[in-house]
Every structure is written in structure tokens, then in C-alpha cells.
Amino acid sequence: MISFIIRRVLVSIPLLFLASIVAFILVVNTGDPIEDLRTKPNVPKATIALREHELGLDKPVVERYVSWLGKAVHGDFGKTIKNQPVWAQVRRSLGVTLRLVLFAEIVSVLIGVMIGVVSAVKQYSWFDYGATTGAFLLYSLPVLAVGSFLKFILAIRLNRWIGRGDDPLIKTIGEGTANFCTASKPYNCGFIPSVTDFLSHAFLPMLTLVLITFAGYARFSRAAMLETLNADYVRTARAKGLSERRVIMKHAFRTALMTVATVISLDFGALIGGAILTETIFEWHGMGRVLVESINKIDPNLLLCWFFVTAVAVIAFNLIADIIYAVLDPRIRLD
């Protein structure tokens, strides 16, 4: 088992290395970071040359890549075009995104798997038809539409309904109240006020993410569950006279969970870079914001770091999916 894991990790390293090359090629082709300076009239040539030198643009691309990689493996991702350390900014945004994504993912997995399993067990029942149709509709709706609906229509109604129309409880913008806990507002600095503030901001974006992801899991676990329910060993278990509950929970569900777990793990890796739209709609300062800003302002180091972090996430969760599958499925040979 350990040698299997080590081998998979070793395979991942060249993949990450190649991904960093692709990312570098993309970043080089994003544009010229000092385009503004160049097109501005009356800027002395020396100023442009100095700026070029500062950003390392005067060196050939390969040399730039090698020096970036050399620093990156030591954890130094350089500075943004505004001379701020890149890693500090990315780490902060990653924290914001993780808070949002982790919780939403857990909730949607729980709801999705539960609905999927129940509709598979009660196949062709009213519950099954309702759940399948509902999941299909939610699965097909664009994030843009779901998020906008929650933000512009539902939030206002809900706030009015709970009698907080003027001082909305459900916030639609940002991941937290600005200057929430300062010296002038010491009563906000406790654990409970800050959690409440976070939840009041996180409710809508989490609901958006849950609505669009749980449907996929429901569909998937329904299919996986149906497959195992028709398997021979489930019939054997029934023939042995086991209770229906035991057949479903111990024999069918466990096997179905195996494939579901892999899909969830793969999905989660993609979500770290992939909640861009939800974050933008609700104006969170997460990884999505970093991406949009670094591309708009052509900030090579920031964009590279973004690509690096998301690539690591995707590769890491691919790895975890492989390991989960190997651990859970005895049919997988490890050697």
C-alpha cells in the first residue's frame, strides 16, 4: 500500500512540472505587463528599461521560467506588479475560498448522496421521479442564473420576510463585514459574533454552490446505487435472508460509495479554482478574484501562483481519489 502511494506521488511530480511549463506559456501569452507604460506619451526610454529589468522582461523566456521555478520550489512566488508579495495575497484568498467551498461541498455531498440513494432504492416511485427531475433541472441551470436569482430576488424577499428588510440579515456582498472587529467595536470580537457574521455572508454563496453541485452527486449516486442493487451479490445477500436494511446499507451502499467517493474527490480539486463565478457574483475576495484581477492587470507572478495552486489542488485530489479507490476496492491490484 505504501509503495503504491509513493509511486503515485512520484508520478504526480513530473505532471506538476509539465503543468508549470504550460502555465508559464499561458502567462507569457497573456500580454505585456507594462503595456500602459509603453503606450503612455513622454515616458523616457530609461524608465521603461528599468521597469523591464525589475520585472525580468529583458531576459529570454526560458531563463525567466528557470529562475521562477528555482524560487517557486523554495516557496518564493515573487512579487506582484504592485510590489506586494504574491504568496501572502494568494494564501489569504485561498483561505476565503476554502471556507466557502469546504462547507458547501460537505453539505452537497450529504444531501446529494442521500437523495441519490433513496431514489435508487425506491426506483420509479414518486420520490424518484421528483428527485430525478429536480436534480436534472438544477444540474442544467447556469450558475449565473442560480446565483443571480438568490442574490437579487430571494435575498431581498427573505430579509423582508424575517423582518430585517432595512438591516438585512442575509448579506449579498463580500465574505465578511469590513472592519467588523476593531478597537471601537470590541463587542464584535468574540467567537459567536464573528461566526454569525460569517454565516450571514456565506449563506447565499453556499446555497448557490450546494444547489448546483448536489444535483450532480444525486444523479451520480443514484446511478451507482442502481448498478450495485442489480448485482448478483446483492441478490445473494437477499437470498441469505438478510434484512432489507442490512442488504442496502451494508452490501449495496458500501460498494456504491466507492465510486461516489472518487468522483467527489476529483470534483473538490476542481472546485478550488472553480468557484470563480459564485465568488464574483457575491463579490468575495477569493481565488476567483485573484484570477480575474491578475489577468485584467496582467500580473505574471500572481497569475502563475494562481495556476500553481490550482494545479497542485487538482493533482493532489486526483491522487487522493486514486488512493481512496485502491483502499476501498479490493479488486484493484496494488503492485
Binding site: A19, L26, T30, I295, V314
Partner: peptide, 22 residues
């Protein structure tokens, strides 16, 4: 297939956005 895996590691929308900027 290794090349396909590599392309899957790079987030789709981000890659397109980076190229589209120019």
C-alpha cells in the same frame, strides 16, 4: 493520454481567459 491528463490539470476557464486577454 498523459498529454490529456496534463491539459485537465490546467483550469479550463482560466487558461482561455489568459490567452483571450491578448
Amino acid at each position: 493520454m498523459r498529454f490529456t491528463d496534463l491539459m485537465l490539470v490546467i483550469p479550463y476557464l482560466a487558461a482561455v481567459a489568459a490567452l483571450q486577454r491578448n
